[in-house]
Design a protein around this nucleic acid. Structure first.
Ligand SMILES: [Mn+2]
Ligand SMILES: [Mn+2]
Ligand SMILES: [Mn+2]
Ligand SMILES: [Mn+2]
Lengths: 227, 227
DNA sequence: AACGATATTTAGCCATGCCTAAATTTATTT
DNA sequence: AAATAAATTTAGGCATGGCTAAATATCGTT
């Protein structure tokens, strides 16, 4: 049979499953169908295929979980996705809000040699443009940083933006309009009790120090390092 | 209907058709099936699809030809293919015999912005690693060079390798073993009447001048510029 | 423990692109 | 002008990966 696990669809399913597993979620037909914009019935069909290929363990009505084989494949896809994003932003001049869609395509290009050479060309970057860790060529995905959500900061604390939770393009574009980017160092001047907004202060691209009001919804999605 | 012309299969058909048209061949179901390793019956089916999409003009039993729309799409694919090959060889350190397969995948990534930025990043290279001209971002595919097949050279003439006819990997690897590469300047010392072999002389990578015997079959596939 | 709500699977359908075998058209010979 | 050969199309099937609607299993409530 020609049944291999190297198809765009199957790979997207593996990635979706890993993504939910990393968040600690149960892998149900409904949750995957939402993530991939398909229907639960379609997911059931794919779960059977992936299970036959030993990429997942699937118990009808009980859910699915990645096998080691499936996990390896998923991590390889994450590696490709994040390296291509890094290349597009750092070398080709794309904005961080412009690369996700294209990386969704590039991650499916099959060539270990290509991605390892691209990685080497860029000097083995540890993080992608959204602050997400890039698995190394052996599939090790580690992140020793202690990032915390900005909404947990106290008045007076200084943070450095190192990542974002979720990275859909409109959210990223919104951040850009606020001058928020990776590595930005800011100070919490005040937390408003009324609506949970954060008053922060930082030096903009133009070298001028200004104050901004970040919404509660926004700061929950921002990850920072504190010193 | 979801019937778009952006599928890997359809794109590969368009490329195959353009490739044969450029060689002046008639586009038959048989010729395309050979090029794509499918069967004539499958090509008939695809010709109907491409015809419905107005990418080709198709007359049953008479053959097919690209429309302007189809030609534009095919040229865009050629552009992507050659730019990715150039990137892999000139930036990532691949050999010219290692990039074709991967470029076959990369050419299907859909993003005009990506390929135009990659082109700019590389400084708009005019030719790919195999000496083939790269269409510009507006789809202009021109080649003002006057390349001739090496077997037409006379004893005593000096040539500069600028391209190869056909570029399957084993052929290219073979060239590599002979020290033959783009830009190589050589002198024809003698043409053997017996077997049509060419005795040529050039300075190798190590700086040492040596003589080589190039087979008739080989020199027919080499394109050179003479000064 | 039984009911209703919710989640999941099954059944049956569709589009894409490939295949083989059979029918048909076109080209070549005599 | 037939007859044969070659090329091409048609017919019928298969695998993948979607869908909807209906059947079934599981879960939360009372
Ligand atoms: Mn994808
Ligand atoms: Mn990312
Ligand atoms: Mn291709
Ligand atoms: Mn090439």
């Amino acid at each position: 049979m020609n049944t291999s696990y190297k198809s765009k669809s199957r790979q997207d399913y593996l990635k979706a499953i890993l993504s939910l597993e990393l968040k600690g979620n149960k892998i149900t037909t409904t949750s995957i169908s939402e993530k991939l914009c398909t229907k639960p019935a379609s997911v059931t069909g794919m779960f059977k295929v992936l299970s036959d290929l030993e990429l997942i363990k699937y118990q009808p009505y009980k859910g699915a979980k990645l096998t080691q084989l499936g996990r390896n494949e998923a991590i390889s896809l994450i590696r490709k996705h994040r390296l291509w994003e890094t290349f597009m932003v750092d070398y080709l001049g794309f904005g961080w809000d412009e690369v996700h869609e294209v990386a969704e395509q590039l991650e499916h290009v099959e060539s270990k040699d290509l991605i390892d050479k691209l990685d080497a060309y860029m000097g083995n970057p540890p993080f992608d443009p959204h602050g997400d860790p890039i698995p190394d060529k052996d599939g090790n995905l580690t992140d020793s940083r202690r990032l915390i959500q900005v909404h947990t900061l106290q008045k007076g604390e200084v943070g450095c933006i190192q990542g974002v939770l979720g990275s859909n393009d409109t959210f990223l574009k919104h951040l850009g309009e606020f001058g928020i980017k990776m590595g930005l160092v800011f100070t919490v001047k005040k937390v408003f009790e009324y609506d949970g907004n954060f008053l922060v202060e930082f030096v903009g691209d133009d070298g001028v120090q200004r104050e901004y009001s970040w919404s509660r919804k926004l700061v929950e999605q921002l990850l920072a390092e504190i010193n």
